[in-house]
């Protein structure tokens, strides 16, 4: 993991799902690729401003360099190479990682409905639903089937780095495998946050997320069923 050595600081907030690691690593790799490009431009501009500055009205022209073919072709080769590299990794490799388990059956099914301005989560396998919180067992891969009751919304859990829009008349799906215990009370990133503008209550269209042990999850299900 070369990129971890070069980008030692931790930019990122709490990451609480396996998918979050894929996304954060892709981000770090892009930082590694972007930094030299950024540095090249800024250093060249600042150097030129200091080195090639002329005070007062110009009295002479610079050399008539129209752009030697060798320089242009070398530049094209490097930029094309970098672009292909970025497409392959983290682009294609990241996509493959995120979809590595797409064909496997999930451990848990959660139906998520977005409406103005609340979230409703349903566990069809247990006949339980809630508009108060999303509870997930740690280490279990959950499939989210997302739908909208009225207008577009977007299902986003910042701590999982997972997002998919809720579209009226359509069911969209995404997956997450929580790997860290915790809840919204400990860290604000453990929330469903609506990420697609939906009107008046958009900003506060949130739902607490709580990741618990499997036993706690079963207990919560049992308690919710009893109600």
């Amino acid at each position: 993991m070369l990129e971890l050595l070069i980008v030692p600081w931790n930019l990122f907030p709490l990451a609480a799902a396996e998918e979050a690691a894929v996304v954060d690593n892709a981000f770090k790799l892009l930082m590694v690729l972007a930094t030299p490009v950024f540095a090249l431009v800024v250093v060249t501009v600042i150097y030129s401003m200091l080195r090639f500055r002329r005070r007062g009205e110009p009295t002479e022209d610079g050399p008539a360099i129209h752009g030697p073919r060798s320089v242009i072709l070398a530049w094209l080769t490097v930029t094309t190479g970098l672009t292909i590299l970025m497409i392959i990794t983290p682009g294609i490799t990241g996509l493959r990682e995120l979809r590595a388990h797409a064909s496997e059956a999930p451990d848990l099914l959660v139906q998520v409905q977005g409406g103005r301005w609340f979230w409703k989560v349903t566990y069809p396998e247990y006949g339980v639903s809630s508009t108060k919180e999303l509870v997930l067992p740690v280490g279990k891969r959950a499939r989210f089937e997302v739908s909208a009751m009225d207008v577009l919304h977007s299902f986003w859990i910042p701590a999982f780095r997972v997002k998919i829009d809720a579209v009226p008349g359509k069911i969209t799906t995404t997956y997450a495998t929580p790997d860290t215990l915790g809840s919204y009370d400990d860290d604000e990133h453990m929330r469903i946050q609506c990420a697609e503008l939906c009107g008046l209550g958009h900003s506060v269209m949130r739902l607490s997320v709580r990741v618990v042990t499997e036993d706690e999850f079963k207990a919560w299900i049992a308690e919710s069923t009893a109600k």
């Binding site: 892709a26 995120l98 780095r161």
Partner: peptide, 8 residues
């Protein structure tokens, strides 16, 4: 433009 980072 990179899908894995854009999802977040």
């Amino acid at each position: 433009a990179d899908v894995p980072t854009d999802i977040n």
